[in-house]
């Protein structure tokens, strides 16, 4: 089994089966901890309703955080980078072809000269 599952990387090795065994043991321990938790939980009662400081629960569609609101911090922090890279994606066919020609010229200088 070792020969089939242990990947030799030259500098070390990786055995996914060992990793899976460790994962299963971790999940069992997590389950045991969870099973010792609150036993008074009742589905479908007031217990499961969100508490929003007494305000009514918003409609389902309004609760979901949409994709456009995720990672704005990341893109905002890198706006200097994005300000330069996004405009390069012009969508204009001649630009696409020019980029191929530029790269060809650059590689040509590197290889031929």
């Amino acid at each position: 089994m070792n020969l089939m599952t242990t990947l030799s990387t030259g500098s070390g090795f990786w055995n996914p089966v060992l990793w899976l065994v460790a994962l299963i043991i971790t999940l069992i321990i997590a389950y045991l901890i969870w099973a010792r938790g609150e036993r008074q939980y009742k589905a479908g009662t007031e217990q499961v309703k969100p508490f929003i400081s007494g305000n009514p629960e918003p409609r389902k569609g309004a609760v979901h955080i949409r994709a456009g609101n995720l990672y704005w911090g990341f893109t905002d922090a890198l706006q200097g980078y994005y300000r330069r890279v996004i405009p390069l994606h012009t969508g204009i066919l001649t630009d696409y072809l020019l980029w191929v020609l530029w790269v060809t010229a650059l590689v040509c200088i590197l290889v031929v000269v």
């Binding site: 390069l88 994606h89 980029w99 060809t104 040509c108 031929v112």
Partner: peptide
């Protein structure tokens, strides 16, 4: 060789010929 590299890198979508 240069033409081969450029043509095939563009066809496989390598940056900056990925547009």
């Amino acid at each position: 060789l240069v033409l081969l590299v450029a043509a095939l890198a563009a066809k496989c979508g390598a940056v900056p010929m990925h547009f």
